[in-house]
């Protein structure tokens, strides 16, 4: 049917000061203002947030699962990017 369905919004909540906004789910609302009001009711009933972002779901671009290899595998063989790759004598102190 979908005569006049409210668009879908993705909701991001900042849990505490100092943390990033995190995706918590989605909801339907006619516009951004209402999406924020609904997000407050649906996702912060127990003090879960100090800030809300909403983005229309259709405006979010995502990587395809099939691109997982080309996108993420190249970093597998670059273990030298991790500090534990290097053997530093204890005498050098905290590094």
């Amino acid at each position: 049917m979908t005569t006049n369905e409210w668009p879908l919004w993705e909701i991001f909540i900042r849990g505490q000061h100092g943390l990033s906004h995190r995706h918590v789910g989605s909801l339907h609302a006619p516009d951004a203002e209402m999406a924020i009001k609904h997000a407050r009711d649906v996702y912060t009933r127990r003090n879960e947030g100090v800030s809300i972002w909403v983005a229309k779901a259709e405006n979010i671009a995502a990587s395809a699962p099939s691109d997982k290899g080309p996108l993420f595998e190249p970093s597998n063989d670059k273990v030298y990017r991790h500090p534990t790759f290097f053997d530093i004598p204890d005498e050098a102190g905290h590094m």
């Binding site: 979908t2 005569t3 369905e5 879908l8 989605s26 909801l27 009711d41 649906v42």
Partner: peptide
């Protein structure tokens, strides 16, 4: 507050179902 939670639970679940390619209005219908 409890009844409002139930509404919230319904919404979390509809939003999970929608990720499978069905629309909210279709489910309601």
């Amino acid at each position: 507050a409890k009844v409002q939670d139930e509404a919230g639970h319904g919404l979390y679940l509809y939003c999970a179902a929608e990720t499978l390619g069905v629309s909210r209005d279709e489910l309601t219908q």
